[in-house]
Simulated scan of single mutants.
Amino acid sequence: MSTPKIKVLIVEDDPLISKRYQMILSKDGQIECVGSASSGYEGTMLAALNKPDIILMDVELEDKEAGLRATSEILNYMPEVKIVMLTVCETDETVFRAFELGASNYLLKNMPADAILDAVKDAYHDRSSLHSNIAGKITREFKRIKTTEDSLLHNFYIFTQLTPTELEVLELLIKDYTRQEICVLRHVEPSTLKSQINSILKKFNKSSVQEVLPLLRKLHIPEILSQRKGK
């Protein structure tokens, strides 16, 4: 049985850029371009018709926020779709607005082909893949608002950097499974689990799980993890 291809919809009003993305996607056997749109309205309609896995969404279409409006509309009715925002010159406000709406990633339009393909695949497989330019913006925002280690934004950023294994462990800890129960469920030795938990604590700069869990509950991480698995 063949592996299903990743269905991608392109929403971009510049025909040359749209054509470039179509060519990039067509060269990867794991990906299928299911359509292209040149406006937020058209993109919303094609998303409903073609049911793509991933949408490459230009921020500025018929106006400066058309892509953001289309993103909001699509995710409202199709929350399972992953949207990667595209722009020529990003601003901090637009970056944060895109992630607030539920975008999976944010790339500059002139990124190389490999970066675009990686963003599509990472979004499809629920892998964190913030490009360095966006990660840098978030870091600068931390400094601007003089965040502390306990700020919610800071801890949410750390959460996005956890590995899939660490996310699985964290989800079980949030559900109040004991370490022994987690070892049985995940078929790992206690020493392996201890190492994984220590890695999580190190990233949050905390000394115990009891310090991390309340922070994650404030961020509604249990709900995010449930949505991620379609529960």
Rank of each mutant, 00 (worst) to 15 (best):
L49R: 14
Y77L: 10
K51S: 11
K64C: 14
T192F: 03
A48V: 12
D58L: 07
L193S: 07
V8F: 04
L193W: 10
T71Q: 00
S191R: 12
V34C: 12
L107Y: 05
I55R: 03
S36H: 12
K202L: 13
A98L: 14
L49F: 12
G136T: 07
V81Q: 01
I221Q: 02
P52I: 11
E223M: 09
L107D: 03
I74E: 00
Q180S: 09
V84L: 06
S72M: 11
L25Y: 03
N76V: 04
R144I: 13
Q30A: 15
V8L: 06
I174L: 07
D122K: 13
L152H: 05
V184Y: 10
P214T: 01
F142A: 07
N105Q: 09
I55T: 03
T147Q: 15
S191K: 08
A37T: 02
E93K: 15
M85D: 01
I174Q: 00
S2F: 06
E168N: 09
R179W: 01
E12L: 03
E171R: 15
I221T: 00
D150G: 08
L193H: 13
K121I: 07
V81M: 01
H125T: 07
V59R: 00
K7S: 13
A113W: 03
D28K: 05
L16H: 14
R217C: 08
M45P: 03
H154D: 05
L170A: 04
Q22C: 08
E62I: 08
A103Q: 07
L185M: 09
M1Q: 14
I55Y: 02
S151Y: 06
A115V: 06
T3G: 11
F142T: 04
R140H: 09
I145Y: 07
A48M: 13
I54V: 06
T178I: 11
K206F: 01
F204D: 00
P214W: 06
L152T: 08
K51H: 14
L9W: 01
T91H: 02
F159P: 00
D122Q: 09
V34M: 05
T71A: 09
S104R: 08
G230F: 11
T178L: 13
E149A: 12
T148L: 12
I197C: 04
R186S: 02
K194W: 09
L130F: 15
T147I: 13
S208A: 06
M57L: 15
Q196N: 11
L61S: 05
A123E: 01
E12N: 02
F156W: 06
L185R: 15
T163A: 05
K82E: 02
A48D: 14
S129T: 04
K146Y: 09
N50H: 11
L162A: 05
K229S: 13
M111V: 10
G67E: 00
Y177E: 03
D126K: 13
D114G: 11
R228W: 07
K231A: 12
R20S: 15
S128F: 09
I197M: 09
R144C: 10
L170Y: 05
L56K: 03
F142H: 04
D58F: 08
S226E: 11
K19N: 07
T147M: 15
E12W: 02
E90L: 10
L130W: 00
S199N: 06
D13N: 04
V169T: 07
T44R: 05
R186T: 03
E42T: 03
Q227N: 14
